[in-house]
């Protein structure tokens, strides 16, 4: 079971919001780029034959002599794409385990809000498409799929994400749960901007945040197999921490430019609560 009952109860009282308008097929609770039938006035446009006469603003026609049709906001569902990074690097330091919990948490939030949720798993260049759902009745299937995901594979993240963001006619939010430990993580984040916003949950293990390595070592990359020799020392650790800070800073900056929220999440048992708190602060959750 990915989410305990207590957490699920808490999630049911929260809603995901997006700052951008969505483009969807079905009505929902989120403002759409389409004009629709809600009570909220949106805009005027020139009358064209075929328009509903009831939407012609007669006052304007009387005062100005132009035929303008009133348009109203449309409310549509939020197409939610939850992408979980299951590359080999996520297999370290409980990152995959915590990542699945976080992904499940977002999925549950979407299902509870009546949004259309589609789950994906990216393992570098490979993309697995999971089940989709619009209601909590689908939660068991999505949860089971998330739970059985193995870690493996590697490679560049950007092409896969770009392909995922660009496909389809809908425009919804994209939630990426990843350690972003890919050389092209910057371009991958840049590509997220074409959607309707989203959230980057940047999961890093405790060993990555504060390495406990000692001595002269030959570090091997779990995905690429590349190696680097390291002689640990106070100076080396200082440099590593600086690189880590720059990495997180750059990821946050690129996410901001792409119009998505960024949360750095240490892979600990407190991660779900930390994420909820962080999303509340950014008003992505209400």
């Amino acid at each position: 079971m990915l989410l305990p009952a207590e957490l699920r109860g808490r999630l049911e009282r929260l809603s995901l919001v997006t700052r951008r308008r969505v483009i969807a097929q079905w009505a929902g609770r989120h403002r759409s780029r389409h004009k629709g039938e809600s009570l909220d006035f949106a805009d005027y446009r020139q009358y064209v034959p075929g328009d509903d006469f009831r939407r012609i603003d007669h006052n304007l026609w009387a005062r100005l002599g132009v035929l303008l049709v009133r348009q109203f906001e449309a409310e549509e569902e939020l197409p939610l794409r939850v992408v979980l990074d299951v590359s080999k690097s996520m297999g370290f330091y409980r990152k995959a385990e915590i990542g699945k919990v976080l992904a499940g948490m977002i999925v549950y939030l979407g299902l509870a809000g009546g949004d259309r949720v589609q789950v994906y798993a990216v393992g570098g260049t490979s993309l697995q498409v999971g089940p989709a759902g619009r209601h909590l009745s689908r939660w068991p299937q999505l949860e089971a799929w998330l739970e059985q995901l193995p870690t493996g594979g590697g490679g560049e993240l950007a092409p896969t994400l770009r392909k995922l963001v660009g496909e389809g006619t809908t425009r919804g939010a994209l939630i990426l749960v990843s350690d972003l430990l890919s050389p092209d993580f910057g371009s991958a984040l840049d590509g997220l901007g074409i959607g309707a916003g989203g959230i980057i949950l940047h999961v890093l293990g405790e060993e990555e945040l504060d390495p406990g390595l000692a001595g002269d070592l030959r570090l091997a990359d779990s995905e690429s197999g590349g190696e680097v020799e390291v002689s640990t020392s106070e100076e080396a650790m200082r440099r590593y921490r600086a690189a880590l800070e720059a990495f997180a800073t750059e990821a946050a900056a690129r996410a901001r430019r792409a119009g998505v929220d960024y949360v750095l999440v240490p892979a600990t048992d407190d991660a779900p609560m930390n994420v909820l708190s962080a999303l509340s602060r950014t008003e992505a959750l209400v």
Binding site: F92, D216, S222
Partner: peptide, 24 residues
């Protein structure tokens, strides 16, 4: 120089960026 023990880590990206001076 002794042969360094090989330790597998998720990624060496950050270690490479840290540019830790090692004579190789």
């Amino acid at each position: 120089r002794s042969r360094r023990p090989r330790v597998e880590v998720p990624s060496i990206m950050l270690w490479e960026k840290a540019e830790i001076p090692v004579s190789s």
